[in-house]
Computed example of a mutant assay.
Amino acid sequence: MIEPAAIIPMLLAAVAGGAASPDPTAPAPISLSTETVPAGVVLQVIGESATLVDAAYSLEVTNASGGNRSTQRGRVSLRPNQRAVLLTSRLGGDAQAGWRAVLVVTPTFGQPYEIRRQAD
């Protein structure tokens, strides 16, 4: 039987997803994948974590000159050990020539972080 005094810390740990003391060696729970394809570039925001994670994310993609910009935002509650594609963005044609992407992740518990990618 679980002692009543132990229930609150267990609930807090479950809600926080263990983020009160995150493992600095653990991979980022939300990441940015890029793939060059014959018709351009495919960007994917991927969620996967060993613990519960609740976070907001934003992906901003611009062309090299900064003239065109696209921003997509969302909020996610990741379940442990379940991979999820949160969004897919396709850049066509000569997008390979120059683009930049910035993924900003703001976990409910823990420090925000950024992942940056650009055309090679």
Score class of each variant (00 low, 15 high):
residue 36 T to N: 07
residue 31 S to D: 00
residue 7 I to S: 00
residue 117 R to V: 00
residue 113 Y to H: 04
residue 79 R to L: 15
residue 101 A to M: 05
residue 114 E to R: 07
residue 89 S to F: 00
residue 66 G to R: 12
residue 55 A to T: 00
residue 16 A to F: 02
residue 120 D to C: 08
residue 53 V to P: 01
residue 84 A to G: 08
residue 4 P to H: 04
residue 106 T to C: 14
residue 99 W to F: 15
residue 103 L to R: 14
residue 25 T to I: 10
residue 111 Q to D: 05
residue 56 A to F: 07
residue 43 L to R: 01
residue 80 P to D: 12
residue 16 A to N: 06
residue 99 W to S: 13
residue 69 R to W: 02
residue 39 A to D: 14
residue 49 S to H: 03
residue 77 S to R: 15
residue 120 D to P: 11
residue 64 A to M: 10
residue 73 R to A: 13
residue 71 T to Q: 15
residue 25 T to W: 09
residue 51 T to S: 12
residue 61 V to H: 05
residue 23 D to L: 06
residue 4 P to N: 10
residue 81 N to Y: 10
residue 114 E to K: 15
residue 64 A to I: 08
residue 3 E to H: 15
residue 88 T to D: 10
residue 29 P to A: 12
residue 18 G to M: 11
residue 61 V to M: 06
residue 74 G to R: 10
residue 46 I to C: 01
residue 38 P to C: 07
residue 12 L to P: 02
residue 29 P to H: 06
residue 32 L to R: 03
residue 30 I to V: 03
residue 73 R to N: 15
residue 57 Y to C: 01
residue 37 V to M: 06
residue 40 G to E: 05
residue 120 D to M: 06
residue 96 Q to W: 03
residue 105 V to E: 07
residue 103 L to I: 01
residue 100 R to S: 05
residue 19 A to M: 15
residue 74 G to M: 09
residue 54 D to S: 15
residue 13 A to H: 09
residue 60 E to Y: 10
residue 80 P to Q: 08
residue 100 R to L: 00
residue 38 P to Y: 10
residue 33 S to H: 06
residue 65 S to H: 00
residue 82 Q to Y: 00
residue 107 P to G: 09
residue 12 L to R: 01
residue 85 V to F: 09
residue 49 S to M: 05
residue 92 G to H: 07
residue 7 I to V: 14
residue 102 V to K: 09
residue 85 V to H: 10
residue 90 R to A: 11
residue 67 G to V: 00
residue 104 V to Y: 11
